[in-house]
Write a protein that binds this DNA or RNA. Structure first.
Lengths: 212, 212
DNA sequence: TTGTTAAGCGGAGGGTGCCTCCGTATCTTC
DNA sequence: GAAGATACGGAGGCACCCTCCGCTTAACAA
């Protein structure tokens, strides 16, 4: 019934399922334990044998890359969803905020990504491209609506985003990053402020106390 | 003869020597093989037992940190030497260039540093502080001589430096970084250019073509 | 010098994780 | 239902991690 024109068999159902399970487990394990986490732990968590894991992902990097790709993809899809939101500025803001959360929950993975970015060029190119497009589509919408200045490229925005997430140590980094992003988004607006919607977090009044 | 007032013994000569050897070996091994390199390989190269290595540096991080500290220190000392050079602008330029070389030869270590910087705060603070001071002293001299603008902080300069070295993939990155640095130093000058000395690499004539 | 002793040395060995290999189990197709 | 392709699991060999302890050696005292 389900034709598969070329003479390749349909992939086995259990293989597909196991691959999925491994990815899911790897995401959890890497997030918690960083890139050094034991692959045997991944297999165990996925409920498959270590051999199965290795068949699907011959090297640690393969597995890692697959997990990473999917994460980036999901983040991009979220941007897609946000495009149907009413307020384009708010949509962009929420997209950036979700990015912070992404970085926050993937603590371990982020360190690994730093490595991946250094070495693997193709993967880096792919993800950067993908995220740039996602950011760009939201940014463009806000610009088209006349709500944001037009002289900032998606790349700039992304770089700014990464820069603001580059604190990664202090306990409060997350709220700091969110605040900085809010400020930044405010700075991108053409209209002074507070026209569309009040922000969730008030600008910290202790901001003047910054270390230097 | 050699008094050591408090009741601690003088450290044993062989301990000192071995510690030194391990550091030397670790520098080589880490540089070549990255942060994952086998500690047993380090011990072997140092010509000591694995136990000796672990006594001196109980964890991989301890060893790594020691190596890193020393490298930073050496780089700083080089800055110190450069302070006695005649041309302050040229001195700064050479310091930055040596930084590129540092990054280039320590390929493996650099990736490791990225990790170290993420996690260890004290080490990061130390090295950043140290490098900032070194950069600052050279920068100040050039500013005092009236050869450079005064509104750039050492931190800014360092950040710019790291940014330019952040390419790390393309085969030609090193020469690119050097060129960018030259341009940057030119930009820092108060006098148009070519007054003190011709640069080794000519400023790329396509510089006007910048993306934005 | 020589003796005493704290400090240092090396590497065996137990533990963990990596990855390969192959007999067995299961799915797809006919 | 049978045949054949495909996937599964985990034992096993290997490398590395790190600890532990008996032996060695340098520092100090006499």
């Amino acid at each position: 019934m389900d034709d598969h024109s070329d003479q390749t068999r349909r992939p086995r159902a259990d293989a597909v399922r196991n691959r999925e399970r491994v990815l899911e487990a790897a995401k959890a394990v890497f997030s918690a334990g960083g890139p050094e986490a034991s692959l045997e732990a991944v297999a165990k968590r996925a409920g498959v044998g270590i051999g199965t894991l290795y068949r699907h992902f011959p090297t640690r990097e393969d597995l890692f890359e697959a997990v990473y790709r999917r994460e980036v993809e999901q983040l991009s899809e979220f941007a897609e969803q946000l495009k149907s939101a009413k307020d384009p500025v708010d949509a962009l803001r929420r997209w950036l905020r979700s990015g912070v959360e992404f970085v926050a929950t993937k603590k371990g993975m982020v360190a690994a990504l730093a490595l991946a970015v250094q070495s693997g060029s193709e993967l880096h190119a792919f993800s950067f491209d993908r995220l740039t497009k996602a950011t760009g589509s939201l940014l463009d919408r806000a610009v088209a609506a006349g709500e944001m200045r037009a002289d900032i490229s998606p790349e700039d925005l992304l770089r700014a985003f990464f820069g603001m997430c580059y604190i990664h140590d202090q306990p409060g980094w997350q709220s700091t990053a969110l605040r900085l992003l809010d400020v930044f988004v405010d700075g991108l607006r053409t209209q002074p402020a507070s026209k569309t919607k009040a922000r969730a977090t008030r600008p910290a009044k202790s901001a003047a106390k910054r270390k230097r």
